[in-house]
């Protein structure tokens, strides 16, 4: 089993629901976003670029097979789960941020201070808490905790806390356009494998040799 995700850019309406669902479900501190949706070519989201076509690009951890972040981690805190997802052990990470220098996709985020302090600083209402409330261990390693320790790096886990219960990642469930799909890349007949073959799927920065397991289906050319 090698898990992969397919994002259909034709169906993505750029609503950023997945960004919000991701942030809420994973209790990301203010200023931290595991998932970003932008309008390529434009400096303002949901505004077409001066020339060219308007489409939207969601980017989060690409769960690369050849992950530079995993290779540079001096203590093996970043690791591949059995299904291919790249996870971070919050109990092991020393916070050197080498992985943030290594990741070409800019998905890794650091905890610059205690999350409670960030809430205060950002003037969140007192005792306003959100997100999956319990710690989650995968193979005995702490891969999710609602209050992140100060000084560790975090990023998208493909919602390890949900997947380990057989549920889909929050972004997949929350997408109003049904643009996101997950499945087994090893199975040539799976829904994701079929879509990748049939619709000219592409990956981000293929020239970097990272072998992402997140695939994108190109939008249909539209006249602007």
């Amino acid at each position: 089993m090698k898990m992969g995700m397919v994002i259909d850019l034709e169906k993505c309406i750029g609503c950023r629901s997945c960004m919000v669902a991701c942030k809420q479900h994973n209790a990301q501190p203010p200023g931290t976003w595991w998932n970003r949706v932008f309008t390529p070519g434009s400096h303002r989201h949901l505004t077409p670029p001066a020339k060219g076509v308007e489409y939207f690009l969601p980017v989060h951890c690409q769960h690369c097979e050849n992950a530079p972040c995993e290779k540079v981690c001096p203590v093996g805190a970043t690791f591949h789960a059995g299904d291919g997802a790249v996870l971070i052990d919050f109990d092991r990470c020393i916070g050197c941020r080498y992985c943030m220098a290594a990741c070409p996709y800019g998905v890794r985020q650091f905890n610059w201070q205690e999350p409670e302090r960030t809430h205060e600083r950002s003037e969140y209402q007192e005792k306003y808490h959100y997100g999956y409330p319990r710690e989650h261990h995968h193979d005995g390693r702490l891969v999710y905790t609602p209050l992140r320790p100060k000084g560790v790096v975090e990023k998208c886990t493909f919602c390890a806390q949900y997947r380990d219960k057989g549920e889909l990642p929050a972004c997949v469930r929350a997408c109003p356009g049904k643009a996101r799909f997950v499945g087994d890349l090893d199975d040539p007949d799976s829904e994701v494998s079929t879509m990748i073959k049939a619709r000219d799927a592409f990956t981000l920065l293929p020239e970097k040799g990272t072998k992402p397991t997140v695939f994108y289906l190109p939008p249909k050319a539209r006249e602007v």
Binding site: P30, G31, T32, W33, R36, F38, P40, G41, S42, P49, K51, G52, V53, Y55, L57, V59, A101, C103, P104, Y105, G106, Q109, F110, N111, W112, T118, R121, S122, L204, L205, K208, P218, P219, A221, V224
Partner: peptide, 29 residues
């Protein structure tokens, strides 16, 4: 020149010869 040149830079569909960088969440307020 390493950090202000965002690696996640692509040529958007329909905009050949242009480069567009995906902004990164600052993580701070």
């Amino acid at each position: 020149a390493a950090y202000n040149n965002i690696p996640m830079t692509i040529t958007p569909f329909g905009l050949p010869n242009t480069h567009w960088s995906l902004p990164i969440a600052s993580g701070r307020f």
